[in-house]
Amino acid sequence: MKYLPKIKKKTIALPLFLLGVIFTGCKDQKEANNDNENAGIETNSEEVEDKAGLNTLSAKEKEEGWQLLFDGESTEGWRGYGKESFPDGWVIEDGALKVQGSGAGEAGGGGDIIYKDEFKDFELSLEWKVSEGGNSGIFYLAEEIEGEPIYTSAPEFQILDNERHPDARLGKDGNRKSASLYDLIPADPQNAKPVGDWNEVSIIVYRGTVIHTQNGETVVEYHLWTDEWKEMVANSKFKDWENFVNAGGDDKKGYIGLQDHGDDVWFRNIKIKKL
């Protein structure tokens, strides 16, 4: 009778000891995770979750007809404007298509790039972030005209570090700030995120109506080929650019282009849906 309680004590003590170890381990892990969070360090599970949806199409997007233009691993489908190959000066970095800054503006680097197919009525969606003082742009309805740069035929969704780049103070009423129709219509509201943060963009072109959205808000709306459009262009620096006035040419379609303006800029989640 005296021996049985001793066995009972030992069988109870062992599970309690193990529970103590488990509790201590969980506490230590929780504290470590809190330390990482306070230090701005993401856990591995968060990193996997963040990267899992990058440069991919969901089942719903596939059903809706979205087409992925960049898979995060290759430059397939892209080439230099006016070139047959993909230029030096652009690289893939952490799942993003990056133009490497030359420090020489448009005079240096690999030059602008375009996607191989032309699009007419569409919705383009992507994310961008810019380096300090950075400048770039997204072209649409571009024609590839020998001897002419891309911007002579294509409207441009401006990409800019509004806080540092002097372009933000030039133009008229902020029409050179981020998400503006460059040098023509200012983005309103001006909602670009700080340098280093990703901005979400949508550009819709449908039968001449063009809509710029940035970070969930419509910031520009205008109508191509109308009398109002022609008057606006006639009162701008583009006034003598016939191909710009007639953006998209006779067929009202063109290339999607990304600009090399000599600064570090990143693009990802580039996808398009024909309308």
Rank of each mutant, 00 (worst) to 15 (best):
T213V: 02
Q158D: 05
S202G: 07
A179S: 12
P149E: 13
D188V: 07
I185S: 01
G111L: 08
N191Q: 05
E146D: 14
E221P: 02
E144P: 11
V210A: 08
W128S: 11
G147E: 14
D121N: 15
S131V: 01
N175A: 08
F139N: 03
L184T: 03
H212E: 10
V195D: 03
Y206D: 13
P149Y: 15
I150Q: 13
S178G: 06
K193A: 04
G216H: 01
G171C: 14
K193Y: 02
S136R: 10
L170E: 15
D167M: 12
D117R: 13
R176E: 13
E221R: 14
G133S: 00
L126N: 02
G147N: 10
P189R: 01
G133F: 08
S131L: 02
E127P: 02
V130M: 04
K177C: 10
S180M: 06
S131M: 00
P189W: 03
G171D: 11
V210C: 11
E132N: 03
E127Y: 03
N199E: 01
N215I: 07
I204C: 09
I138Q: 00
D161Y: 07
S131P: 06
K193W: 01
W225Y: 14
G147H: 11
W128D: 03
F122W: 13
F119R: 11
K116I: 09
P166L: 06
H212T: 04
Y151G: 06
Q214L: 13
F122R: 11
G174E: 04
V205L: 11
K120M: 11
N175I: 04
K172F: 12
W128G: 02
H223W: 04
N175W: 05
T226Q: 05
V210I: 15
S136D: 02
E132Y: 03
K120R: 13
P166D: 12
V220R: 07
I185N: 00
Q158Y: 03
G147V: 15
I204K: 15
I145C: 06
L141D: 02
G196M: 01
H212G: 11
E132C: 01
H165V: 12
A142C: 12
V130L: 12
E146L: 10
D188E: 13
V220C: 15
W128L: 05
S178W: 00
F119I: 08
W225K: 10
T152K: 12
S153H: 09
R169Q: 15
